[in-house]
Computed example of a mutant assay.
Amino acid sequence: MPFLPALAQDQVDPAGERLFSLCRNCHEVGEGARHKIGPHLDGIIGRVAGSMDGFRYSKAMREAGENGLVWDAETLDGYLAKPREFISGNRMSFRGMEDPEQRAVLIAWLATVSESVPGSLVDDADNGREAREARSFADIVLAMEGDPDYGEYLAGECVTCHQETGHADGIPSIVGLPREYFVKALFEYKTNVRRNEVMKLRVSKLANEEIAALAAYFSGLEPQ
């Protein structure tokens, strides 16, 4: 599969955007995209693996880039097919996309929107009342200076599901997660923007100071 240059918007199958829904919980793409659980994908074509500033990559991903891995259509195709086999030890929880035609459509779409879409892609719920509430509550916590030592004390319940190493085996990693995203995500569970009854139950018990402390702790960790 050869290198794929960015195409004009009307040349790309809109099915690519639908396929990206599988990625959207962890990645943003387009102008203004930010790091989430995974790094943003703006400018992904031609990027050296594990090279984005401000994101804590796994050791495996950093080493892949140091050894010369660059994301183009061919390498993305191999990675999306079987992420854990393509880069052993990487943290991405996505198990892979089997259909080569779907991979080709998604990659072609990424090649275009990572260069041309104004603004980052967000969930439809971001336009709703619950999402506005989550953002306003998150702003209050983000104004606090969280205590990472207190966060480490509180983290015991988190690491019963999320691995302390930063590896992801079906459950997303929270090690090294950007502080702003961590806080916003917890409030989205509180306000039902994100639907997970286990997370909602656990987050509902946390005070603002505790959320700030957990965010300070986990954002400061380096994935192994």
Score class of each variant (00 low, 15 high):
2 P>N: 14
5 P>Y: 06
11 Q>P: 05
13 D>Q: 10
18 R>L: 12
20 F>G: 11
21 S>F: 08
22 L>K: 14
27 H>D: 12
27 H>K: 09
30 G>D: 10
30 G>M: 09
34 R>D: 10
37 I>E: 06
38 G>K: 03
40 H>W: 07
40 H>P: 11
43 G>F: 02
45 I>D: 08
48 V>D: 09
50 G>Y: 04
61 M>P: 11
62 R>C: 09
66 E>Q: 15
68 G>L: 06
68 G>D: 10
74 E>R: 07
75 T>E: 06
77 D>Y: 04
77 D>R: 05
80 L>Q: 07
88 S>M: 03
89 G>Y: 00
92 M>I: 15
101 E>F: 05
102 Q>S: 14
105 V>S: 09
107 I>F: 06
109 W>K: 14
112 T>P: 02
114 S>C: 10
116 S>M: 12
116 S>N: 12
117 V>W: 07
118 P>H: 13
120 S>C: 08
125 A>D: 14
129 R>Y: 12
130 E>Y: 08
131 A>E: 07
132 R>Q: 15
133 E>G: 08
134 A>H: 03
136 S>N: 10
139 D>S: 13
139 D>C: 03
141 V>L: 02
141 V>I: 06
141 V>K: 01
141 V>Y: 00
142 L>H: 02
144 M>E: 05
146 G>D: 02
149 D>E: 12
152 E>F: 01
154 L>V: 03
163 Q>A: 14
164 E>Q: 07
166 G>P: 01
171 I>M: 00
179 R>D: 02
179 R>V: 02
182 F>P: 02
187 F>D: 03
203 V>M: 02
205 K>L: 10
207 A>D: 05
209 E>D: 10
210 E>L: 01
214 L>R: 06
215 A>C: 07
222 E>A: 13
224 Q>D: 04
